[in-house]
Amino acid sequence: MKIMLDAGHGPETPGKRTPDGKMREFEFNQVVVQLMKMELQKCGVIVLLSHLGTSDVPLIERTTLANKLGVNAFISIHANAFGSSWNDVSGIETFTYTKPSSHSKILSKLIQDSMCSTTKRTNRGVKRANFAVLRDTKMPAVLVECGFMTNRAEAALLQSASYRNLCSNAMAHAILSWNKKS
C-alpha cells in the first residue's frame, strides 16, 4: 500500500493558530504526520508526504502529486478552529468529499471511530465538504480535524506529545485496518 500524508495548512498560513499564539496549526499537523509515517512504515506501507513543511504548497500541487504518483489514499491532517477566540466547541471530525467513493466512506468511518475511541474526545461525526484535497484527488481521500485550537482544553492537548502520539497511532491503526478491508 502507498499513501500520501498531508500536513494540512503550511507554516505561513495566516490565522491558523491558537488564540494565544502559542501554537500554529502546522506545528501539530507536521509532528502527527511524521509520527504516522514512522508507524506506517514499520508495517510496510510506502508513505509519501505532500509537502516538506518548509513553505506553503498550493493545494493543486499536493493533489496533482498524489494523482501522478497513484497513491492508494490521501490523508490530510488538521487542527480545527471555531472563530478566532477561545470557546467551548470541541471534538473530532473527519471529512470526505460531497460525493465520496465507497472506499472513502469506509476509510473516514474507520479513522473517525479510531480517533474518538483512542482520544476520548467528542465525536462530531463524518461530514462531507467540497475541500480541494478531497475533490481533486482521484483516490480515497479524507481530511481529519483532530481537535479545536480555539478550545483551551483541546489546545493544551494539541500541544502535548502524548496527544500527538495518540492521534498518530489511532489514524495509523485505522489506515492499516482499511487496507485489510479494501
Rank of each mutant, 00 (worst) to 15 (best):
57 V>Q: 08
26 F>E: 02
87 N>K: 14
71 V>D: 06
92 I>P: 11
41 Q>E: 15
14 P>D: 12
50 S>K: 00
78 H>V: 03
24 R>E: 05
69 L>R: 03
20 D>H: 08
42 K>S: 13
59 L>D: 04
85 S>A: 11
50 S>A: 15
14 P>Q: 13
48 L>R: 01
87 N>C: 08
13 T>M: 05
49 L>C: 07
93 E>L: 09
91 G>K: 11
34 Q>S: 09
64 T>H: 08
90 S>E: 13
37 K>Y: 03
80 N>A: 10
91 G>T: 02
70 G>R: 00
67 N>F: 03
68 K>M: 14
46 I>D: 11
30 Q>A: 09
23 M>I: 15
19 P>D: 05
86 W>G: 02
17 R>L: 12
39 E>W: 01
66 A>V: 06
69 L>G: 02
36 M>T: 07
30 Q>C: 08
71 V>M: 07
55 S>Q: 09
30 Q>N: 15
74 F>Y: 15
47 V>P: 03
50 S>H: 01
35 L>C: 02
33 V>Y: 08
91 G>V: 04
95 F>P: 01
95 F>S: 01
92 I>N: 09
25 E>R: 13
16 K>R: 13
86 W>K: 05
71 V>Q: 02
54 T>I: 11
27 E>K: 11
30 Q>W: 13
38 M>P: 00
30 Q>E: 10
52 L>S: 14
90 S>N: 13
24 R>S: 03
88 D>F: 01
12 E>N: 13
76 S>T: 04
90 S>I: 00
85 S>E: 12
93 E>M: 12
37 K>G: 00
76 S>C: 12
71 V>H: 06
29 N>M: 07
29 N>Q: 07
21 G>C: 05
29 N>G: 09
21 G>H: 11
21 G>N: 15
27 E>S: 06
57 V>L: 06
62 R>C: 02
39 E>S: 14
62 R>V: 04
44 G>V: 00
77 I>L: 09
91 G>R: 08
87 N>W: 10
77 I>V: 14
20 D>Y: 10
16 K>V: 05
27 E>H: 06
19 P>G: 11
42 K>I: 04
63 T>R: 00
82 F>D: 09
21 G>D: 15
75 I>Y: 00
33 V>G: 06
86 W>N: 04
56 D>M: 06
59 L>M: 09
63 T>C: 02
64 T>A: 10
14 P>M: 11
26 F>G: 02
21 G>T: 11
65 L>E: 10
88 D>I: 05
28 F>G: 04
93 E>P: 10
50 S>I: 01
46 I>W: 00
66 A>C: 07
78 H>I: 07
81 A>S: 15
95 F>V: 00
75 I>T: 01
15 G>A: 12
88 D>M: 01
28 F>H: 14
33 V>S: 09
53 G>N: 04
54 T>D: 13
22 K>I: 07
27 E>Q: 14
